[in-house]
Design a protein around this nucleic acid. Structure first.
Length: 886
RNA sequence: GCCCGGAUGGCGGAAUCGGUAGACGCGCUGGACUUAAAAUCCAGUUGACAGUAAUGUCAGUGCGGGUUCAAGUCCCGCUCCGGGUACCA
């Protein structure tokens, strides 16, 4: 009766494949549908790591559970296969990325199939397939042909864009310029991050805080100006923000991160007169209430008005400063954050609330890309301005008496020697121009001042977002080509739908050009052509890896459709995704980009839901134990030995500390799922990954833990596969009660993605069954069903032993029979002053008074009552008794 | 700095609403089986103290306060760890 997992797992994987057990039918007549989606992987050369099966197993368990509950389940898998590593490999070895990709996908597919996941493999997709990416291009064309109507708060076809008469009057060129400026996708010069090492433009988010490139790790990243495709995602900022409020089944943390990323702020734009100029200087501030405390102004080095503002005697200083700032990357600017820099421009602005002259400075702590690129500085109530004022000895005027109990802090703030950004009551806040907010609090002050500014025509309420235009092109070969032609007259056109796909040409040289152009520039046959508009050159940029993953969940719905990205009726049936599981590293970018595309498609009537993912869940990272010396240097795991629970270096004998760290080759603590499958089986791997702890927790891999669940499966097999243990005698009340409790608990645990406790419940059932020595067949069958989402191979095997001729995958989930759960008595824990002292069995229907009396007269109660006064007795029916004694 | 999340036995972790802290698993200890070992099965396992023992007492969920009949759970103030973000006015 040995548990031969190798044979069992092979047998059932072959069965599922041959019988297409998990093929999904588009059975639109079944209103119960469930779309369970995993974040599809990038098939890297190193194969699957143990982090992948974690999320996949979780969604698989839910999928299997839903099938058994009568749901039509869509559970697909595919490959996010465009990307840098395959191209790097091609540059090094000459192997075409498509070959590498194919090979890696084969490895991933083999590994994933060996885990017994219930995917419908007929729906497998690959972002690098022409059949797939032609629809990525198709969506890009839709973005290009869409503008955002701010009044209706939605994207609309570009041919519905109203053109103002004065633009029309200026001719077709002006109309074209006007239109292009409204498109969601546009082509323009952009300052971009350029990695000299990879010869690639990187997105902002690919450049890490320390100035290194996320992909290659080098610090050879610099600024460069290049023609780029950009997407106007900020137009959807408000929709993306308010949409989050509707996503009640998303983790709050992810929503918070997206909110921070979008970075909405409300405030006011205020126009300042500039001494000696007619043009006004407009600033954005969230604190118009602090105008009385504005002691200077700052404009960004790139500000358009700087040339007019700077005066003769300051020109050389300012020019030098601007030049130096231009040389600096954003990174250098932030690296020097501690030391603020800036130069006086020589000119003054007039504060609109009190007509005071205040100096205008130029400093790079003000960014051109946000707000108006100019600020009014209120050092008393803004920490950055305070630092700057200290640096350059500018006046600090406190205009808000802090609401604090600390007299020392208060005095510092009033003296201008400390900064206060919280609430308080205004002082010194009345001026020659008629505004007086003295005594008000912050909220009232902001409101009153804004109203005053609006009334005087000096300003208006304004909203800003941190979210910037999305740089949407890469100078790379292995990505989706843009469906774009550049004509000799400099005009641009997207290709008509019937010319799709624009296929990626075969290439032999993959090296990017030094000047930043993509290797596609070498594909001369592909590059040039002529159509009815004349000679053209194709766009050589390709799309970033985000593109394919922005909409893949839609293609799974109808993956082989040659006519459209998907069939509308099918989309209407399957969307939204009911459960989306993946890593927290995609909390912002992938999910925000994908939501953005989805909203555009929704506005255009292409999809039926405003949001794509109903429930989102981030599985936690799986870490591993690692070892370090006293001084903190890491020791590879194969140089560590354990003695009596302590760890020692095999070479030096020094005692080491066990820590938890990311798996890495250098630490030699990488766990390969293939090894686990070979040694313990896929069911053990699945079970262990789910048993380790809560799905969303970061947790370390413990080898002996795998053995633990493996032992459990051995016990299950030894007991439940042995006909001697399976009888026809009815089981006793204890067994039946536990069984039905377990049906309830495991069901609700699966719904709540709490697989660790569900598995422990399966263990409890097994333990009791073994203790009883024998169970009736019906009980064994129920147990097998409960086990089947978690360890499907073993469950199928048992199911067959019990005489079924078919798969367990669509057997109905067992129902809870309340009759077995009913209790006639409850064992009260009796506490004295909150400490449990003894147990008191009472009938379930006993009244409070009866319980109270029984508790007080219990022989064990005497000991606690004697010599004390009983002050109070709390009886919570069928829960607890607490007796308070003095 | 700011925004999130976390801290429970030797270890991974349980504990819907505030109501018996430590489920389940690992490890360890003892026992059965065995010539022996492995495997398996059974029992014990938060710590301290007392007792031959069943058992009992006290302490106990990162630290310090508080609310409550009752706090791992709620409130206030910290410490440490993890994630995100960083001159966004």
């Amino acid at each position: 009766m040995e548990y031969n997992f190798t044979d069992i797992e092979k047998k059932w994987q072959a069965y599922w494949e041959e019988n297409k057990t998990f093929k999904t039918r588009d059975d639109i007549s079944n209103p119960k549908k469930f779309y369970a989606l995993d974040m599809f992987p990038y098939p890297s050369g190193s194969g699957l790591h143990v982090g992948h099966p974690e999320g996949y197993t979780a969604s698989d368990i839910v999928s299997r559970y839903k099938r058994m509950n009568g749901y039509n389940v869509l559970h697909p898998m595919g490959w996010d296969a465009f990307g840098l590593p395959a191209e790097q490999y091609a540059i090094q070895t000459g192997t075409h990325p498509s070959i590498t990709t194919l090979k890696n996908c084969d490895t991933f597919r083999r590994q994933i199939k060996s885990l017994g996941l219930s995917y419908d493999w007929d729906r497998e997709i690959n972002t690098t397939d022409t059949d797939y990416y032609q629809w990525t291009q198709w969506i890009f064309i839709r973005l290009y042909h869409t503008w955002f109507d701010k009044e209706q708060e939605k994207g609309r076809p570009i041919d519905e864009l109203p053109i103002p008469d004065e633009i029309k009057a200026r001719g077709s060129h002006a109309v074209r310029e006007y239109t292009d400026a409204k498109r969601l996708a546009y082509y323009d010069n952009a300052q971009v991050w350029w990695c000299k090492h990879c010869k690639i433009v990187c997105a902002n988010e690919e450049v890490l805080n320390d100035g290194s490139h996320e992909k290659c790790g080098t610090r050879e990243v610099e600024r460069k100006n290049l023609k780029q495709w950009m997407l106007r995602i900020p137009l959807y900022a408000e929709r993306l923000l308010t949409g989050l409020d509707t996503l009640s089944e998303w983790p709050e943390s992810v929503k918070d991160m997206q909110r921070n990323w979008i970075g909405k702020s409300t405030g006011a734009e205020v126009d300042f007169e500039v001494d000696g100029l007619t043009e006004k200087l407009r600033v954005y501030t969230t604190r118009p209430d602090t105008l009385f405390g504005a002691t200077y102004m700052v404009i960004a080095p790139e500000h358009a008005m700087l040339g007019d503002i700077v005066t003769g005697e300051q020109k050389s200083h300012v020019d030098a400063y601007v030049k130096a700032a231009a040389m600096k990357s954003d990174l250098d600017r932030t690296e020097l954050a501690k030391e603020k820099t800036g130069v006086f421009t020589g000119r003054y602005a007039i504060n609109p609330v009190n007509a005071k002259r205040i100096p205008i400075w130029v400093a790079d702590y003000v960014l051109m890309g946000y707000g108006t690129g100019a600020i009014m500085a209120v050092p008393a109530h803004d920490t950055r301005d305070f630092e700057f004022a200290r640096q350059f000895n500018l006046p600090v005027i406190c205009i808000l008496e802090p609401k604090t109990a600390d007299p020392e802090i208060k005095q510092h703030v009033l003296n201008g020697t400390a900064c206060w950004t919280e609430d308080g009551a205004y002082i010194n806040s009345d001026g020659s121009e008629g505004l007086d907010i003295n005594g008000l609090n912050k909220e009232q002050g902001i409101k009153t001042t804004t109203q005053w500014l609006v009334g005087k025509g000096l300003g208006k309420a304004a909203v800003n977002y941190k979210l910037r235009d999305w740089l949407f092109s890469r100078q790379r070969y292995w990505g989706e080509p843009f469906p774009v032609k550049h004509y000799e007259d400099g005009s641009i056109a997207v290709v008509p739908d019937h010319e799709l796909p624009v296929t990626l040409p075969e290439l032999e040289a993959f090296k990017p050009g030094d000047d930043g152009e993509s290797p596609l520039a070498n594909a001369s046959d592909w590059l040039y052509g002529t159509d009815d508009k004349g000679k053209f050159r194709r766009e050589t940029n390709t799309m970033p890896q985000w593109a394919g993953s922005c909409w893949y969940y839609l293609r799974y719905i109808d993956p082989r459709n040659p006519e459209a990205p998907f069939d509308k009726a099918k989309e209407n049936y399957w969307m939204p995704v009911d459960l989306y599981i993946g890593g927290a590293e995609h909390a912002v970018l992938h999910l925000l980009y994908s939501r953005f595309w989805h909203k555009v498609l929704y506005d255009l009537g292409i999809v039926s839901t405003d949001e794509p993912y109903k429930k989102l869940f981030n599985q936690g990272m799986i870490l591993a134990f690692a070892y370090e010396t006293e001084t903190g240097s890491k020791v590879p795991s194969d140089e560590v030995e354990e003695k009596d629970g302590k760890f020692f270096h095999t070479n030096t004998g020094a005692e080491l500390n066990q820590i938890v760290a990311k798996m890495s080759k250098s630490l030699k603590n990488v766990v390969n799922p293939d090894d686990v499958t070979t040694n313990y089986g896929a069911d053990s791997l699945r079970l262990y990954e789910m048993f380790m702890g809560p799905l969303d927790a970061t947790k370390p891999w413990v080898d002996t833990g795998v053995k633990g669940v493996y032992n459990f499966l051995c016990r299950v097999y030894r007991f439940f596969a042995d006909p001697q243990n399976i009888g026809s005698e009815p089981d006793d009340a204890e067994m039946m009660k536990l069984l039905h409790q377990s049906i309830r608990k495991i069901g609700s645990d699966i719904e709540g993605l709490k697989f660790n406790t569900a598995i422990s419940q399966l263990m409890i059932v097994t333990n009791l069954a073994m203790k009883k020595g024998k169970v009736q067949k019906e009980t064994a069958q129920v147990f097998t069903k409960l086990l089947s989402p978690f360890a499907p191979h073993l469950a199928e095997e048992l199911w067959q032993l019990y005489g079924a001729g078919t798969t367990i995958a669509y057997e109905p989930w067992p129902e809870v029979d309340e009759q077995y759960l009913q209790e006639d008595s409850f064992e009260y824990p009796v506490s004295f002053n909150g400490k449990m002292r003894f147990k008191l069995p009472m009938p379930i229907a006993a009244t409070k008074e009866e319980v109270e009396k029984a508790a007080l007269t219990h022989e064990k109660a005497l000991k606690w009552i004697e010599g004390h006064e009983v002050r109070k007795i709390i009886v919570v029916p069928n829960k607890i008794v607490n007796i308070v004694v003095a």
